[in-house]
Structure formats: structure tokens, C-alpha cells
Design a protein around this nucleic acid. Structure first.
Lengths: 185, 185
DNA sequence: GTCATAAGTGAGTAATCACTTACAAAAATA
DNA sequence: TATTTTTGTAAGTGATTACTCACTTATGAC
């Protein structure tokens, strides 16, 4: 791992644990084992470091959420989306925690919001298409519902990872969406 | 409005708009039309001011969520919960935005987390009871699902209040939970 | 009216922090 | 080998900020 990567990695861990504003660049440097100046050699400023972290995380999310259209059966596609989402939740805990904290920070919204909204929009559109194929009366709302549900579960879990029954919720969700009849409603 | 209330009110607005750490106490004082020293006469420190704000918000939420047990019909109770939740979302926008931002901040979690979790626990328990009466196979998971869903919708809306179809989602949710058959699944 | 307490002010301060700068070592390039 | 570029460091620095303190003004209680 290069020192530049070391900085990124350490900053993610500290930002996620204490918050962006409460993490001093001097602390990042110390824990990463580099001089403080090096941070500003590799990244324009502290905000630039944050944006690099978010970019890297979003890149991985986009990667995981790629193989969408490959699945023909719409119900299988929805279930696959749920499974992939829970994998991402578990694998990227620090990133999600950081993302949650800076989500409403105006400064950040400018930089990373566009990319995040692009991914979100893509996912919701894909989901809506699947729900449409399943005969849902309001596919758009169904898609937004599932999206919000996964988001909400992720947040609840982040708040108490050792207590929240994440695995149970995944099974419950999959079971729910395996049998749901959208045409009836 | 007393100057103490003025401080609280102004601080909520600024914290919600810019974030807790990015809001200087000098700024709060200026916008509230008081001297900076007065803030520390009425509140022990900046964190104490934040806690007072959160306490006040939680008090109102607890109030709105009180009249629960009054409703006999379990399905009506669930629908009532959904309606009350959406009212709270709309009425307390600034509070929710602030709550979202500080939700993962360790320092805050110590103070306000206990109260919030008490309210959340109460709500989830009530919901689980209603779902149980409705014959749900997994009432606890059903309750957590609805809770996470509302939480997720709130967050999505907060992120783009002018674009997110909050009213549509409320109608969709109510319609969904009006007809849902929990015993089948 | 007097006194005690509460409300309010504003200038000051110690500490923190993001960022700079001057310089050195290492690596790449020729 | 000589030179240019990249990577790295250590010691600042100016600005910001939460909080204090000495002091003044208002509010009751008796």
C-alpha cells in the first residue's frame, strides 16, 4: 500500500468513527504514519481528501450494482438486487457510516451528490422496470419503496450493528418480495 | 419569545442548515440578536445547547406518538401510525435534518441516543403488537420493516424535498398496508 | 427603598486546526 | 552521470472558535 493509499484508508476509518469535521488532518497523518504536509501534496485540501474517499466508495458500489440487466426474470432481478444491497451494506460499513454523516452537509452535496444521485437514479429506474414487468400498478412507487426500505434498514443497523437483526431482515425482505402480488393491491 | 427560546430556535435553524460543527456560537448569538455570553449563561456549553434542542424535538415526537393504544382495530392503528409519521416528517423538517446529521456522532449518541431509542423501542413494540393481532407470521420483523421504511422515506425526502414525491409515497404506503395480508406470505 | 438574584453584555484568551513553505531525499529521465 | 521531477518532512502561521470574566442592568422579595 502506497502512502497515498494509506492516507485515504486511515482518513476513511477516522472520518467514519468520529465524523469529518472532528477529525484533524494532523491526526490522520499521525495514524497513517506520514507527515501532515504529505496529505496536502496528494490531495488539494481536506475536502478534496473526502471527495476522493467518496469517489472510491461510489466506484465500488457502482461496480457491484452493475450486473443488473443480465437477469431476465424480473422477480429474480428484484431478489438479486436485495441480496447485492445487503452484501454492500456489510462490506462497506465504514463508507456507509461516513456517507450517512456527510449526506446532508451542503459542501459535500455539491461534490459527491451528483454521482450518488446518478447511481440511485439508475437503480430506481431498473427496479421500476422490473416492477412494471411484474404487473405493479405503481412501479415507480414500488421502486422508491424498496429503495427507501433498504436505506432505512442500513441506517438502523449502522446505529447499533451488534443489536440489529440484519440477517433476519434480509431473509424477511427476500421472503416478502418473493411472494408479493403487485397486480392485486 | 424569551431570549433563551430565541437562542434555541436560531440554533436549531443554523445547525440544521449548516451542521452542528460548522455553526459558530458567535453566529448563533448574532442571528438570535443576543450576546455570545448569554448562550453560555443559559446552556452549559455548545453540546448542552444541542442536547436541549434534541430534547425539545423528542418531546414533541413523543407527544404526537402518544395516542396509540386508544385505537382498537389493529389495522386502523397501523394506518394511523403511518399518517402520524408523515405529519411529523412535514412539521419537524429542521429537527429531522439535524437529527440525521448528528445521529452517528459519538458525542451526541451518549446524550440523546437513550431517549431516542426509548421512543423507537416503544413504537416498534406497539407496531409489533398490532401486526401480531393481524396474524403476521413475523410481527417483530414486520414492525422493523415499517419503521425502517418510514425512516428511509424521510431521509430520501430530506435530501431533495422539492423533488421527492412524499405525498405519493404516503398514499402508496397507506394503500399497501390497508390491503396487505400478513397471514399468507 | 434595599438587597439579593437573575439576565445580559462584550472584550478577551488559550487552544485548535487547515494549510504553507523551505528544504531534503529518492526516483525517474536524459 | 547529470538533471529534472516526484515524494517526503518539520516547523511554522494566521484565522477561527468555544468559552471566561469582569461588569452592568433589570427583576422581584420583604
Amino acid at each position: 500500500m502506497t502512502k497515498k493509499e494509506q492516507i485515504l484508508h486511515t482518513a476513511l476509518a477516522l472520518f467514519a468513527a468520529q465524523g469529518y469535521d472532528r477529525t484533524a488532518t494532523s491526526r490522520i497523518a499521525r495514524e497513517a504514519g506520514v507527515s501532515e504536509g504529505l496529505i496536502f501534496r496528494h490531495y488539494e485540501n481536506k475536502a478534496g481528501l473526502l471527495e476522493a474517499i467518496l469517489d472510491e466508495g461510489l466506484r465500488q458500489i457502482a461496480g457491484t450494482m452493475e450486473g443488473y440487466r443480465l437477469i431476465e426474470n424480473p422477480r429474480a432481478a428484484v431478489l438479486d438486487h436485495i441480496r447485492r444491497s445487503f452484501i454492500l451494506i456489510r462490506e462497506q460499513e465504514a463508507f456507509w457510516r461516513l456517507a450517512q454523516m456527510v449526506r446532508f452537509q451542503p459542501e459535500v452535496r455539491v461534490g459527491a451528490a451528483a454521482k450518488l444521485e446518478a447511481i440511485n437514479g439508475f437503480i430506481v429506474r431498473q427496479l421500476a422496470e422490473q416492477f412494471s414487468k411484474l404487473g405493479a400498478r405503481a412501479p415507480q412507487q414500488e421502486a422508491l419503496t424498496l429503495f427507501a426500505l433498504i436505506d432505512g434498514i442500513c441506517i438502523q443497523w449502522l446505529q447499533a450493528p451488534e443489536q440489529y437483526p440484519l440477517e433476519d431482515m434480509k431473509d424477511h425482505l427476500i421472503n416478502k418480495y418473493r411472494h408479493e402480488q403487485y397486480g392485486l393491491g
